[in-house]
Design a protein around this nucleic acid. Structure first.
Ligand code: ZN
Length: 559
DNA sequence: GTTGCCGGGTT
DNA sequence: AACCCGGCAAC
């Protein structure tokens, strides 16, 4: 009490609280003895350390908060990407008329010539302004013929009808093409943005082929495309959203700072919120009886995904909830170390072909499975149902940067239990499954990256040799769940989301006790010895031993 | 209700 | 690390 007199700025305390927005303060200040909090000498001298500490805390907290915004950004970026794709100025016309080219045969006559290949939208037309374009005889151009880009020479360009007679160099054919379908070789505007997606499996003949492939190949008509894209976009966004949380886990392989940090934070966080309730439980439990509703078995038991699954196991739910915060934590810093590439896999019964671009896969499906089908419109839509996006983890990916989706792409971790140490990230996973499977499975595993950050955690002492798990990470979690269940763990962490389940609190130390020695009903028996408190009385608290003052086990009057 | 003190939080 | 407290079990 006396010492507190020097306190210069009593107000500083409250302020700090406000600043950090920590929940507890109000209660504290309001209740109990007032004395303690006005003491402030510490801050004066320990200025630096405290500041730094606070800073870290602050950053953590803020970080979390800021993440909210960040989170949105992910999907948004994705969306953007999509939009970009959609809005890419291109061949709306191409498709519409693609199906019918006028091919001139030897007789020099132009005939309607429709064929699958020729209309393959492999090459978007860069001639944004066909109308303005005037091709000269002998000019080198490219046209899409038989799905290939063919170097051709202009023979004649009819400005009126915008038809261009060209000579297909390789085929030696003479053909009439719509101006829109002809790409001028020279047109070499801005170099192609080197899209990872941009792939053209076609055996491109021309040397300057790339000049042409500037645009992303979007095989749709504007209107149609727009709609479709919307759908896709929505789907993808949803998917990414639902899966995003898992993203955190990938770092597993690399015990990189960010990952662990994030984990810690969340852990911390949960701890904060957890509230006293947690400790309380301590006593109970004697009997492992209450196997805590949550964990019947280990969710991971079934590697399969069961969409319904998550409803059943709260563990999952809990996880999901938690995951979010995870995600939120420092989204920016995190970099997909293990680059994950997005591939597209054909779902046709016996196919399974995997391509790197969505365009490619679509074309594949369309041409290989759906057959041509002049009704481009219908076809186009169908393609979407026969391929799926797949995440492929690439070891040495030089630079798998761009695609936003990859960044947020969900990475599935499977069989966490199977092999503790090697947190083999599972690669290719169907996006569709992600939501349920990913979560449920990752639930247990996700703890991995929760490093044994806090030494103090060790205090509980109970380092149960439990599972081979990375108990390092699971600190209390492990202890908690240990015997009864491994998975459910998170129970309290949910906190922030209020809607808790009636999860029975799990108390670490107790559990531990039970197995080893026959604790039976062994409540801790209080020593008969009187302690400082009793001896000196509350009014003479200053005479108590420190332990007593701190409400710890008395050091002066041992039992 | 009082005591003892664990588990946690703040500084 | 030093301090403080909420809470809970034992009394
Ligand atoms: Zn004492």
């Amino acid at each position: 009490m006396q010492r507190s007199c020097c306190n210069p700025r009593p107000c500083s305390i409250p302020q700090s609280y406000v600043l950090f927005g920590v929940s507890p303060p109000p209660a504290r200040l309001a209740g109990g003895y007032v004395r303690p909090y006005l003491r402030h000498e510490g801050s004066a001298r320990a200025c630096l350390p405290s500041v730094s500490t606070m800073a870290s805390v602050l950053s953590r907290r803020l970080g979390k908060r800021s993440l909210l915004g960040a989170r949105v950004s992910v999907p948004s970026s994705l969306v953007d990407g999509m939009l970009v794709t959609t809005s890419i100025p291109t061949l709306q016309a191409e498709l519409s008329r693609a199906s019918s080219h006028l091919v001139s045969y030897d007789d020099g006559q132009c005939r309607e010539h429709s064929e699958e290949g020729s209309r393959a939208p492999a090459f978007p037309n860069p001639n944004l302004n066909p109308n303005r374009l005037q091709l000269h005889p002998g000019q080198k151009v490219y046209v899409t013929y038989n799905g290939q880009e063919c170097a051709s020479l202009v023979e004649q360009h009819d400005p009126g009808s915008d038809e261009v007679k060209v000579l297909l160099l390789e085929q030696g054919l003479h053909a009439c093409w719509k101006l829109e379908d002809v790409r001028v070789a020279e047109i070499q505007r801005s170099p192609p943005p080197a899209l990872p997606m941009d792939q053209s499996p076609t055996p491109t003949p021309g040397p300057s082929q790339r000049s042409v492939s500037r645009n992303i190949d979007v095989p749709k008509r504007k209107s149609d495309a727009a709609v479709e894209m919307d759908e896709m976009m929505a789907a993808m966004v949803l998917t990414s959203l639902s899966c995003s949380p898992v993203v955190q886990s990938p770092p597993t392989s690399d015990s990189s700072i960010p990952a662990s940090r994030a984990a810690c934070d969340s852990w911390k966080e949960s701890g904060d919120i957890s509230d006293s309730g947690s400790s309380t439980t301590s006593g109970h439990w004697s009997g492992g009886s209450d196997i805590s509703t949550p964990s019947p078995p280990h969710p991971e038991a079934s590697p399969k995904y069961s969409s319904e699954a998550f409803s059943s196991s709260q563990a999952d739910e809990g996880f999901e909830m938690d995951s979010d915060p995870f995600l939120l934590d420092e989204p920016a810093p995190r970099k997909r170390k293990n680059s994950v590439k997005v591939m597209y896999k054909c779902l046709w019964p016996n196919c399974g072909k995997v391509l790197r671009s969505i365009v490619g896969i679509k074309r594949h499906v369309k041409t290989q499975h759906l057959g041509d089908g002049a009704d481009s419109d219908q076809r186009r839509r169908e393609e979407d149902f026969y391929y799926t996006e797949v995440q492929v983890k690439e070891e040495a990916a030089p630079e798998s940067a761009p695609s936003p989706s990859s960044a947020s792409s969900p990475i599935i971790i499977q069989q966490a239990l199977a092999k503790p140490e090697t947190l083999v990230l599972e690669q290719s996973t169907l996006e569709s499954h992600l939501p349920s499977s990913a979560l449920s499975q990752s639930a247990p595993s996700s703890f991995w990256h929760i490093q044994a950050d806090h030494a103090y955690q060790a205090l509980p002492s109970i380092q149960i040799p439990v599972s081979p798990h990375i108990f390092t990470s699971i600190s209390w979690a492990a202890a908690t769940s240990t015997i009864p269940s491994l998975s459910p763990v998170r129970s309290r962490s949910l906190s922030f989301s209020e809607h808790q389940q009636p999860t029975p609190m799990l108390k670490s130390h107790l559990i531990v006790a039970s197995p080893p020695r026959a604790p039976s009903g062994t409540r801790k028996v209080r020593g008969e010895a009187k302690k400082c408190r009793k001896v000196y009385g509350i009014e003479h608290r200053d005479q108590w031993c420190t332990a007593c003052r701190w409400k710890k086990a008395c050091q002066r009057f041992l039992d």
